[in-house]
């Protein structure tokens, strides 16, 4: 507790610098330590105090301009540990004080505030004020930047949401369209339209296929490599229909191994290919390349 207190004393930087919301832990700590109840032996010489007061005090009828004091009636108790409330009460005391002082000065016609063209030495030097200003500016900039960052983050979040919404809508629309087409067909079927001119339209919307209109059929043809668009027919030209049995195995082997021999051998790594990183584009692709070029 006290160590913290000392740190706060030594290091002025460890406080929050906003004048309104500073954390003054050192003060709090000081407030906490206090006798629970007043000690009985404490001296309190009321008469002596009043006597001394009478001794030192200035004459009662002294002009106010000598004293410049203003008393302020306190409205309510302020919690000491509530920094904000405490500072606010001080501030309002000061503000009300100067308002009253202004009224007093106004009645006597004395100048009050410093005119703007009156230059004289100030309590804080210009160098110091420059520092204060730069600090304020830096603070402002920092706040603005963080605000911007926060906004960007929020925008990103929002964009994501919007995107998701759009996708949802799109799928919904698609579903709806499909639904409507189904409905339309049903209607057509019910009305008996289809018998007459089925040939034209029914090809397009044929049976179960209509449910998944643009899907590739999942049927795998035997002996056809997945990339082969011709369905394995390209591997052999037009041949007679008589050699059905032989052709089947031939077809299989051809499609498996290709026409010009086994493909597998070509695909295997060799000494050169293992050392070749030229086509390697994962992560930091530039580093190995550079190494190679250096060599």
């Amino acid at each position: 507790m006290m160590v913290e207190d000392e740190l706060a004393m030594i290091d002025p930087e460890n406080e929050d610098f906003d004048p309104e919301t500073e954390s003054e832990e050192d003060e709090e700590e000081q407030q906490v330590v206090k006798l629970a109840e007043p000690s009985k032996t404490a001296v309190y010489n009321r008469d002596g105090l009043l006597e001394r007061l009478a001794d030192i005090s200035w004459p009662d009828d002294l002009d106010w301009t000598h004293r410049l004091n203003i008393d302020r009636e306190e409205q309510e108790e302020v919690d000491v540990n509530d920094d904000l409330a405490r500072e606010h009460s001080f501030y309002t005391q000061g503000l009300e004080g100067i308002r009253q002082a202004y009224a007093n000065f106004h009645s006597t016609g004395e100048p009050f505030l410093r005119p703007s063209d009156y230059y004289a030495e100030m309590v804080k030097s210009d160098v110091h004020m420059e520092k204060v200003k730069s600090r304020l500016l830096a603070e402002k900039k920092r706040i603005e930047e963080s605000e911007e960052r926060r906004k960007a983050r929020e925008n990103k979040k929002l964009a994501k949401e919007v995107q998701a919404q759009k996708m949802k809508e799109r799928t919904k629309q698609k579903k709806q369209e499909i639904e409507s087409v189904k409905k339309w067909r049903k209607q057509r079927q019910q009305s008996g339209f289809d018998k007459e001119d089925a040939s034209g339209l029914d090809l397009a919307f044929d049976g179960g296929d209509a449910n998944k209109p643009f899907q590739r059929s999942n049927k795998k043809r035997l002996g056809v490599s997945p990339g082969d668009r011709s369905g394995g027919r390209a591997t052999f030209g037009g041949k007679g229909k008589g050699f059905d049995k032989k052709r089947k195995s031939r077809e299989f082997r051809d499609s498996k191994f290709g026409f010009g021999g086994r493909k597998g051998l070509k695909k295997q790594n060799t000494a050169e290919t293992t050392n070749d990183f030229g086509a390697f584009h994962k992560g930091d692709c530039s580093a190995p390349k550079n190494k190679r070029t250096k060599r």
Partner: peptide, 26 residues
């Protein structure tokens, strides 16, 4: 709870030697 004038969060400045108005709580 000492805070000196050098602290940068205290941003005010005033004439050196101008007479202060003293306000006291009741």
């Amino acid at each position: 709870a000492v805070h000196t004038m050098e602290e940068l969060k205290l941003t005010g400045n005033h004439l050196k030697g101008s007479r202060p108005i003293l306000t006291f709580s009741s």
